[in-house]
Design a protein around this nucleic acid. Sequence first.
DNA 1: ATACATACC
DNA 2: AACTGGTATGTAT
Length: 398
Amino acid sequence: ARARQPPPRGLPWRPGANERGVRPRPRRPWARVGQRGKQRQRRSPQPFMSAPSTSAAGAAGEAHAGPDAASAGDGGELVLELLEEDEDDEACDREEAQDGWFAASQQQHELQSAGAGEAGTEAGAGPSAADEPAWKDYATVFTNDKAGMGDNMVHSKEHVQRVVYEMSQGSPHFENERRKERAADERASRMEAHVRAATEQALQAARRRADAALTALELTRRSDRAWALFDMDQFFFAVHAQKDPKLHEVPVAVGGIGMISTANYAARRYGVRSAMPGFIAKKLCPQLTFVRSDFAEYSRVSKLFGEALRPFDPEGTAYQAGLDECYVDLKAASAARDETPAETCAAARAAIKAATGITVSAGLAPSRQLAKVASDLNKPDGQYVLPSNRGAVVACAR
DNA sequence: ATACATACC
DNA sequence: AACTGGTATGTAT
């Protein structure tokens, strides 16, 4: 898992700005038109590194584009708008027209009946044997490990996976996940084919370029930083539990029947966790209670969190990533306090606890990405120090 | 530059 | 029955 890449050091963070401090241009209004609901027919996967579109448009369309776009002829105003955008590009016109929601509703039944058979054979041809139950094939984020989901689990991973499958199977969301999975598989196949088609000479040249890039990158590595990632434990839940500590004793999810944003540790034993729809969680844990989210309160506590870190950040390196995470380079503060970075990190965590009443875990490492990884290793209310040398980094990676 | 896909909280 | 919303980056054209 890759950590989100924060902006370069020294740049102030502000909401809505990317790392160059620039707000992204808003999408053109018509770009939203087709996005209503999840039913929208997605554009077919594009070829990986295809030949120039002038010569390849037809072939690519045949190979990848599915049903003929000509059937979208009576699209009405939307198609006119789309055509106006790209009058001069025929291939683009065809695709845009195909992408419209009206075409989707027209083609939906065709796709579902015709595509179902195709998808079926395709899946059957894959490595998963036909004698395996379908749920074993349905890998989701919910079967990954997470803090609080170690030894004393109520349900096995397999049970969770099966329940998630059974509750999702057949829904529009499920079909969408399958579609994305297929698209990703196809993209990987195209890349593999591309590599197979390359000459040995081309491959060697590519390897040399990659090696050179890696070497250049390695030279930029610096070990004079002490990056910490502070991550509040079960943040949303912890905010609620402060007002009502009894909540710790029973399985609680923050969110609703549609979506859960946090689960407390009691709930995680049942496999209930962030990003899980509430109705599936309820199936896994019938006694689960829900607490409605309160973003105004989360923001308030999040500010206290950030302010508590300021004394540990004389150089202004802090980058608050979301409401419950903050990266800080502790180098300057630990020098000023005449401490090891680990000691400064512990002091900062104590300060956060004092300011917010909520425990926080931290990772300490020579880079932000490593700090992020390290912060998961001693959760909750702990910290993990990854020393600033390659041996430790490689050992940790294993 | 634009649209769409993916990732993270 | 029911699977977020906000922000940012990556990929393909």
